[in-house]
Design a protein around this nucleic acid. Structure first.
Lengths: 234, 234
DNA sequence: GGGACTCTTCGGTGTGGGCCGAACCGTCGG
DNA sequence: CCGACGGTTCGGCCCACACCGAAGAGTCCC
């Protein structure tokens, strides 16, 4: 009984159009200022401030005051997973082909994007498939990195082994993609791969949002490292 | 933008105390009548009827009219996972010991319960641990049944192999437990194990809710099959 | 110090929606 | 055919809350 009211309170945080817009924007994993979010959602600064207060109090967001700015960010990977889990319920028509399902404005997002801290979209799925095809990732029942997979991350990809150790966070996790309706690699390994690809300049962000694109150097590198042909992705 | 309003609409379905109560009750996976839910939540029949209309229209519940009764049920395992995912966010205090965290009224639930269609609570975690200890389940990175695990399910446990084939549903999945704060086995395999243990009479439901208890025969069988000592569970 | 800027606080307004009771409709059983 | 019962529909009430503008607090820069 007590639990149901807590559940309702949590859901109510996301049950408002403006707050939902904030949270979806914040799914890019970066920090936004209160003013940016107000403009994005089309509400006044005072309204945005009240909403952010509720989201922070509810534990979905964390804030950092810096000068006259209030930066907010998702409180952690679990919040991001929660949001993507909810978003995954919003595409109840798996019948139509992907080319029709994705509108032109979101075409770049469908090609490749960050999902909180890992890669999603066709790029995320393609990398996941390539890892599975080379025996680096076991997707038969749940997602699990093979020992070859761990070696590949720390060897050719150049992730340091200590970056793959975490107290609590699972190494590999499946995250359901709402444009592809397929699982892609999340968890600590997914986040580190995304970090690494951004750091090497193999992928880069488009504009200020979640969309990412693969650079020519990245296309070549992924072909060498993963036998991955990304030419049809664009 | 369009997506955010859909997200808000979905969250709003769960953002009401009464509807949240309904959904948590329905997490036992069984069908309830409208009147039962109204009594449970302490609202009038007319109010309950309106809430159920919204939950069904929103795709969270499915209904079956039978005589003068309206039976409702969660629309599927994905809805159940969504709910448990939200509930998992409600225990943000992992510091206190479990014995203090669980109130007396929910002690039976903490011992063992069904989580939609699989087992949770200390029982669910104990079985998951036992499977892992015997090499039947790989929990190192994500959850994955080993081939020994599949053999054990279809052999000693007596699940027919075709019951373990599904078009879409993953065989093994990790489900986070809100009393134990540990993962336990969900997915198709988790559901079949629960079915089987109920069918053999090794576990049985307590009253009309989600709590289950292990019978003496079940205690003995699980000791034999899994080296699992359940005497301290009660 | 003064002006520009970001954000917060506080009244006040309007509306969405949760709730109930009363009336009504179907179903079941005698 | 009638009463009991489960569920639905409708009208009305009322509260929660999203929203804004105005005023104010804090920060930055000239």
């Amino acid at each position: 009984m007590a639990r149901s009211s807590e559940l309702a309170a949590l859901a109510r945080l996301l049950g408002d159009d403006t707050r939902a817009r904030f949270c979806l924007a914040l799914l890019d994993g970066r920090a936004w200022t209160a003013g940016e979010l107000a403009t994005l959602a089309g509400v006044s600064a005072s309204t945005a401030s009240e909403h952010l207060g509720k989201l922070v109090a509810g534990g979905l967001l964390v804030e950092r005051r810096q000068g006259r700015h209030r930066y907010v960010q998702l409180a952690g990977p679990r919040v991001a997973e929660l949001l993507e889990g909810l978003v995954a319920h919003l595409e109840p028509a798996p019948e139509r082909p992907a080319s029709l399902r994705t509108s032109r404005v979101s075409a770049a997002l469908a090609r490749g994007r960050t999902c909180y801290d890992h890669l999603a979209g066709r790029l995320g799925v393609a990398i996941t498939d390539a890892l599975a095809a080379r025996g680096l990732l076991d997707t038969t029942a749940g997602f699990a990195l093979t020992s070859d997979g761990v070696d590949w991350l720390t060897g050719p990809l150049g992730i340091s082994p200590e970056d793959l150790r975490s107290s609590r966070r699972p190494l590999a996790k499946a995250c359901l993609d709402w444009t592809e309706r397929r699982s892609h690699l999340a968890g600590l390994a997914g986040a580190r791969i995304c970090d690494r690809l951004l750091a090497t300049g193999w992928i880069k962000r488009i504009g200020t949002h979640r969309a990412v694109t693969v650079t020519p150097a990245g296309t070549e590198a992924l072909r060498t490292l993963l036998d991955l042909d990304l030419t049809q992705l664009q």
